[in-house]
């Protein structure tokens, strides 16, 4: 049976492995962390249907277990070729094809110094909020309930100051989702979303946005927050322009949530550099560049190497799963007729 190395055990990698099994191939998932699931493990509910994240996670991991897919945990990959992967320490894992599904990194919000993440206690990221939601403990640092919450869109996206010029795509809808979750938790709170553009690209997203405005009373203000500073009572003053009326504004908030973007995976550059002759090429944003964005969006251009999920661009979980299946199909086509 032909062997396929799948780098990364997130939604794309897991689906790729499951589809490869369906096609009579033998996938091996190489995962650097201690468990399958990728970042999905940290999420609480998924937009736009508010499906609990664990339902999707349990479904995928359950199928992986049922199918008896070989999984190597705690295993870092250093290099990729069409004949297999090099693991940390130089060990080779030979394979007939490779699916790179190593995902993305979360933008480090500390780089946007002006928002004071890790300096002021009540500045959080969307990832922090998902974790708090999972624990059922959304609160300010001192345990109290926020009376005014502001979400800042595009933190580490569309921002050349931190070398992240791309749109991370899923933050806008995440901001809408978390604002609605906050409204449910804190019915009396005032909630503001500060956005540059609202990008509601998926099914049901625009409807969710309208409902957030109309039914959940979320205030959407078009303007980028320029800075957060502490007030004497331990809250945060933020400044923005309300660009739709053309006037600067300021307000004090209890909780500031930064919608952190999707940054290219740290291993992309490593994989690219390990093949000096080319093969794995990176786009200007650092994500891997498929041969084209239409029929070849899971093909690397390097024989036997395929991409799935957010390794090549910010994507939703559904899209990542779709790409996992697509990559498996391309692998099967590639291996058909080969010895």
């Amino acid at each position: 049976m032909k062997k396929v190395a799948v780098i990364g055990g997130g939604p794309a990698g897991m689906q790729a492995a499951l589809s490869l099994v369906q096609m009579g191939l033998a996938p091996v998932i190489v995962e650097c962390s201690s468990a399958l699931g990728g970042k999905l493990k940290d999420w609480h509910q998924l937009f736009p249907s508010m499906t609990p994240a664990h339902e999707v996670l349990d479904e995928l991991t359950g199928q992986i277990a049922d199918a008896g897919v070989e999984v190597m945990l705690h295993t870092e990959v250093e290099g990729v070729t069409g004949q297999g992967v090099t693991l940390a320490g130089g060990r080779k894992l030979e394979a007939d094809a490779v699916v790179v599904a190593s995902g993305f990194d979360i933008f480090d919000a500390r780089l946007k110094e002006e928002y004071g993440y890790h300096i002021y206690d009540n500045v959080f990221t969307t990832v922090d909020v998902e974790r708090m939601l999972n624990k059922g403990a959304v609160a300010l640092h001192d345990g109290s309930a926020p009376r005014r919450i502001a979400f800042v869109h595009c933190v580490g996206s569309r921002d050349e100051k931190v070398n992240q010029k791309h749109c991370s795509k899923v933050c806008c809808i995440t901001g809408v989702k978390q604002a609605m979750e906050m409204r449910t938790l804190f019915p009396e709170a005032e909630i503001f979303n500060f956005y540059m553009d609202i990008r509601m690209f998926g099914p049901g997203y625009e409807e969710m946005y309208q409902s957030a405005q109309q039914d959940y009373g979320i205030n959407f203000i078009r303007g980028r927050v320029s800075e957060a500073s502490p007030t004497i009572d331990g809250r945060l003053q933020i400044k923005a322009e309300d660009t739709l009326v053309g006037r600067p504004m300021k307000m004090t908030v209890d909780m500031l949530v930064l919608l952190v973007g999707m940054k290219a995976g740290g291993s992309n550059a490593k994989f690219s550099a390990a093949l000096p002759g080319g093969g794995i090429t990176l786009s200007s944003s650092g994500f891997v560049a498929p041969v084209d964005l239409f029929a070849g969006n899971v093909s690397s251009g390097l024989e036997g190497v395929f991409y799935a999920g957010t390794v090549s661009a910010p994507k939703t979980i559904g899209e990542s799963i779709d790409e996992g299946a697509m990559a498996a199909l391309r692998v099967a086509e590639y291996l058909k007729g080969r010895k």
């Binding site: 405005q213 109309q214 039914d215 009373g217 205030n219 400044k239 309300d242 009326v245 006037r247 600067p248 504004m249 300021k250 307000m251 004090t252």
Partner: peptide, 23 residues
Amino acid sequence: TMDLDRNDIGPAREILAEMPEWG
């Protein structure tokens, strides 16, 4: 600067309560 700490948002809220679609 519009200072949302000092502005009285009450009347706007009353309008919104009567006509949520305005939001």
